[in-house]
């Protein structure tokens, strides 16, 4: 669609610009301000330049949190994307079954994030939880299951919760992508005698490319920002084994009131996210182009 060239359109964008600027630019400038100073109290601050940045870039706890974050986000993608595709393929195409599936899938997405944590605490507790009691009654583990007992148990619980919570989003996206495929494609494949694998590989998968790109990037970004669920479930423990970037940042900022280092950390964190965001945006633009030319 050819667009009108008119800079007066800025008047329409202005309200959004003002409200988002108030919520984003002013706070971000405050963070920049903190990151360059050592603050002892109100009106008592010393300019320290890049010291906090140096400190944070060499901080091993930050490196560990970043490493855990990458492992976590990669695992999330590796499990949720294939599972989501499978669920979308299995879902009924029309009728009440389709509506019921959609509603069921959407429920976990509308539960407040810390309540998700609460659900999984209650579900996996070794004394009252169905999962915890169930797995311990099998006597397979040398140490009884308790998500606060061992890092590996905490990770399993956390991954189960994450997959439970967000796979529906991937499934919904894939389902929407599948619904957009014209029936004629399937008929043509049927005439050619294509196997169901061939239909998936050469019709469904290419047609889902757009939604899959979005699903992968959304899950990557959002799992990178994860806070409330692990906060409610494990609180970052046992030890620091499930302390991800946001949790560490909040601990640093509100627990210890290390404003300078926390601000420097915030900016580093923000820049990493911004980099992903740029890649995300480029990928989205290219996906749009690909669909128009084909």
């Amino acid at each position: 669609m050819e667009k009108w060239a008119d800079n007066k359109a800025w008047f329409l964008v202005l309200p959004v610009f003002v409200v988002v600027a108030f919520s984003a630019i002013i706070p971000l400038m405050t963070v920049v301000n903190y990151s360059l100073q050592d603050i002892f109290g109100p009106g008592n601050a010393v300019f320290v330049g890049t010291e906090w940045f140096k400190e944070m870039l060499t901080d091993t706890r930050l490196h560990d949190a970043l490493g855990r974050q990458f492992i976590f986000s990669s695992l999330v993608l590796m499990i949720e994307i294939p599972l989501g595709i499978l669920i979308a393929l299995a879902m009924p195409k029309k009728g009440w079954g389709a509506s019921a599936s959609l509603v069921t899938l959407a429920i976990p997405l509308l539960i407040p994030w810390n309540v998700i944590g609460t659900i999984w605490i209650i579900f996996t507790r070794p004394d009252i939880g169905l999962f915890g009691v169930g797995i311990n009654s099998l006597n397979l583990l040398d140490v009884p299951f308790d998500h606060t007992a061992r890092p590996s148990y905490a990770w399993v619980t956390l991954m189960a919760m994450e997959v439970w919570h967000w796979t529906p989003l991937v499934a919904l996206l894939c389902y929407a992508g599948l619904r957009a495929i014209p029936e004629a494609y399937y008929q043509a494949a049927k005439i050619d005698g294509a196997s169901s694998w061939a239909v998936f590989r050469y019709i469904q998968l290419p047609k889902m490319r757009g939604v899959l790109t979005i699903a992968i990037l959304l899950r990557w970004m959002d799992s990178f920002l994860i806070y409330a669920e692990p906060f409610a479930l494990t609180g970052g423990g046992p030890g620091n084994s499930t302390t991800f970037l946001s949790i560490y940042l909040v601990k640093l900022a509100t627990g210890q009131f290390d404003l300078g280092p926390a601000a420097a950390f915030s900016l580093i964190y923000f820049l990493i996210v911004l980099l992903f965001c740029f890649i995300f945006y480029q990928a989205l633009l290219n996906v749009g182009k690909g669909e128009k030319t084909s």
Partner: peptide
């Protein structure tokens, strides 16, 4: 693009200044 970056911004970053 700038608007979209705010959708992706870590809320934890804005906590203190907010």
């Amino acid at each position: 693009f700038w608007l979209l970056t705010n959708r992706m911004a870590p809320p934890a970053v804005f906590l203190l200044p907010y």
